[in-house]
Design a protein around this nucleic acid. Structure first.
Lengths: 129, 129
DNA sequence: TATAATTATAGTAATCATTATTATTATTAA
DNA sequence: TTAATAATAATAATGATTACTATAATTATA
């Protein structure tokens, strides 16, 4: 196994993830971090986002359209995805703690976690339409 | 607006979706329907799967790896996705009916639906490891 | 502190899933 | 039966992501 080595690029990516609340795509992270590191490569962004997700320092959010999104907020919470504009928004909804066990009752494998995504229209799209 | 025209290819795709319980990817549908229509195009498969989903005759399941999957069972239900092999399995868990309203309480837009995916290890991967 | 070892990067090519294009074919309406 | 039109097959194009490789940055060691 290889040991993790510091990199300023990864630090900048992590910082941006933690400061942003828009659940950016890899490309959005790329655009932002390029202000500090004009030569950073999109591959570097992807590699580090996935690394941070593996380390548990970020969450990868699978969406139906427009690529995965990333979230620096690692505490369990749920998301809303607007079917009009695709934006992802944090929800204030307490964690469903018993569903994993409930789902496991009639199931032959081992259930460890779940993710839930809510869909509809965000307030921006309601107002601007 | 254009009127829908019958096609034997679409009929075969629909039939396969309804007979299968493995939540096939577009490519799996393609492989199967090719036995009846050797010249069918992958584009035709994609177009019809999306069309069926739009018509409400199938459900598109977004997964973290390996492409979207399709389900001919349209009654609301939840899925499990194995983190080892990627297989998608139906769960016997009753629908969470109040979460949409609960999520909407502190939210500025309109929430219409949700999807939930459970993760863990399926029984095949537990046994074969 | 200099040097060696090793990981990370930039730049680029390749891959995978999906959608778009277009000439031809199948279905439906007149 | 013919005309209108939607669907298809074949292929090209796109978008998101990963793989490759020579160089640069970081860390360990002498």
């Amino acid at each position: 196994m290889s040991t993790l080595k510091y990199s300023r690029q990864r630090e900048s990516i992590k910082e941006y993830l933690n400061s942003s609340c828009e659940h950016p795509t890899a490309d959005m992270v790329y655009m932002s971090v390029r202000q500090e590191f004009p030569n950073i490569s999109l591959g570097t962004v992807y590699r580090n986002l996935n690394l941070l997700a593996d380390l548990g320092e970020a969450i990868k959010i699978t969406t139906p359209n427009g690529g995965d999104r990333f979230d620096g907020r690692t505490a369990p919470h749920y998301h809303f995805c607007c079917t009009k504009c695709g934006n992802v928004i944090d929800l204030d909804l307490k964690e469903l703690t018993h569903v994993n066990e409930a789902a496991n009752e009639h199931f032959d494998g081992i259930i460890e976690s779940h993710s839930m995504m809510f869909y509809g229209t965000c307030s921006d799209c309601i107002n601007n339409q």
